[in-house]
Design a protein around this nucleic acid. Structure first.
Lengths: 340, 340
DNA sequence: GAAACAATGACAACCGATTGCCAAATGTTG
DNA sequence: CAACATTTGGCAATCGGTTGTCATTGTTTC
């Protein structure tokens, strides 16, 4: 019984195709990547042979000889943070649509891991998307000089960025709280190295001054639900009646802790989160939070990066994209308690 | 001003090091990968040069010549499903510890995407971890013949697997419900192609027969919170007083829908989830669910795969690993309502 | 019908490593 | 001091493609 031509278990190479068609390997390569440069009949034969052998190009070899890897690195500080799920999905879908592979790296909230990952990716990826970078401006700029980079939620002059406009949403949140009668508000800050947290606080402080209400900054708190307990206690101790948390994880952790301590939300304390992550709508009470199109942010970042990689057509790529953010009011905010 | 030797912006190669040390490239290669085969002084010189040039091996080239890519593919049906967060983190950490890179792929709950991803990974990865595969047994076996595979939550003879033992937890859940007085229980099934769902139902059915209570299977439901609404309505319509959902997403969706409809949980209806995902502890009411060490499952899967890849030392690798599961009782289950 | 031109495809170098093979250098022993 | 065993390290082929160069073929034009 004759063995099928495709029966060899080793993946087919262009050489197999070349041998089968009686042409040179380079012709096969051209037929598949530069179809116009090859006789249409030859091309047809080659394509048929490729199909029959179920040929798939070896991406390693391709990368090695062409210099392009067809991969894009995506760096996130913490994979288990739900905020990044939608972001990752956005980048994944958009990259796949463009024929790129996503290399996902968890940098464990560490600038060192982040830097070494970048160095590593420099050779194995065509570009990098960095979310919430913990690196210094200089380090980021230096990295961007070596490999195309788009940042998300980190704005450094000279590096294309997608910024989720939470600062402007903080004033919405503040107005919401003020209209409910709150005059003493706390901001539960995120990591000191988080630019998002800093910007948000700056915006909040400015808005508060404008409106003549008292805001104070507490923290920093790690962006995890576990930090919510400390945040809740700090908020209670500070005497405020409402707080705006760096993100939903902290806010949700606060809700749990406040419940444990018998402090009612929103009757005794109002809580506002940020990001509208998975869970914000079904926690108890449902969380008032600042929402934004996160998946789209991922897609936009990919588009910007790809525009940088293939500067072929039309419109010059923008180097900065601001994602709108709005306040979603749910059950965790309510009227300020009457003064006792 | 003299330019630094390391100043060229192109990444250093072993040839640069070789030139700098006055040896052949192959010697550099050996010095770095087979230190014993090279004179200790030469090695020292080479290492110093490598450090000075901040040399990093090109993984593409390495893969091409050695046949080993140093990467492992991890296939998940849906990245945004929180269940996979911990799993992914487990694989990521364990892989990184072993010096491997993780290639994460979202197969979008599609067997076709799954199959094509596998074919793709066959060349760019040394092995694959497949979670909750939607492929047929034959397809999975065929794939496993081409590249080392470890499955998670999918048991096929001949393919090493990590199985989370939820079936045995279902009887715990059932006993819990029975002790609360429930006699009519529904199982809200997952996708028909999900082996986990099938196994869980089989186990539940057997346990129910043994204990003489009524269980019925409803569904299938997609494993998303949105499906919870339909599941809730189906459960209510069927007249049961308790239900066990395929996973926490469906269960949480049910909680939301039941609340909308004014059906109290657990007074009117008890709900049990599965997986103990992020959110199960802070939803309203907190969800009684079947918990298991998911992150560890990811780590174990990686260990099994790596044992397969490097069959060097000691103990023969096991081909099947069962992760224990236990019932975590929270607020979503309570006494059966009195018969009206 | 010859010259000019375009289309086509073969050859070979190259990307950055790994690795088998062999020669040179070193050290040991009788 | 010769003969032998053992390191040590260089040469060159190889992995699977891409791409520049060039010879050949076929077509068009005057």
């Amino acid at each position: 019984m004759a063995m099928q031509a495709a029966g060899t278990d080793r993946p087919a190479t262009i050489h197999d195709i070349a041998a089968m068609c009686g042409v040179a390997a380079s012709t096969v390569s051209r037929a598949l990547s530069t179809p116009d440069r090859v006789n249409i009949r030859t091309r047809a034969r080659i394509e048929a042979a490729a199909a029959q052998l179920s040929y798939t190009p070896n991406s390693q070899a391709k990368a090695l000889s062409s210099g392009r890897t067809g991969a894009v690195g995506v760096l996130v500080p913490d994979i288990t943070n739900p905020f990044y799920f939608d972001l990752i999905r956005g980048t994944q879908l958009q990259l796949k649509a463009a024929g790129y592979t996503q290399l996902l790296v968890d940098t464990e909230e560490s600038d060192e891991v982040e830097a070494s990952s970048m160095e590593q990716l420099r050779k194995s990826a065509d570009g990098i998307i960095v979310t919430a970078s913990r690196l210094s401006d200089e380090a980021l700029l230096a990295a961007a000089a070596k490999i195309p980079i788009v940042t998300i939620n980190r704005d450094v002059a000279g590096v294309p960025a997608v910024v989720i406009d939470t600062p402007s949403a903080t004033s919405q949140a503040l107005d919401h709280l003020i209209s409910l009668g709150h005059t003493h508000v706390a901001y539960m800050a995120g990591p000191l190295t988080s630019q998002s947290s800093t910007r948000r606080w700056t915006a909040l402080e400015a808005a508060a001054e404008e409106r003549g209400v008292d805001v104070r900054r507490l923290g920093p708190f790690a962006p995890k639900t576990q930090s919510g307990a400390a945040a809740a206690d700090a908020a209670v101790h500070s005497g405020v009646t409402a707080c705006i948390a760096f993100n939903d994880l902290i806010a949700i952790g606060m809700l749990q802790r406040l419940r444990e301590r018998g402090i009612r939300v929103p009757e005794d304390m109002s809580v506002v989160g940020c990001d509208d992550i998975f869970g914000a709508d079904f926690c108890n009470p449902p969380l008032t939070t600042m929402a934004s199109p996160i998946e789209q942010a991922g897609r936009v970042a990919v588009s910007m990066l790809l525009a940088q990689l293939n500067p072929l057509a039309g419109g010059g790529s923008r180097s900065r994209s601001l994602m709108p953010t709005h306040l979603t009011v749910r059950g965790s905010t309510g009227p300020a308690p009457a003064v006792s």
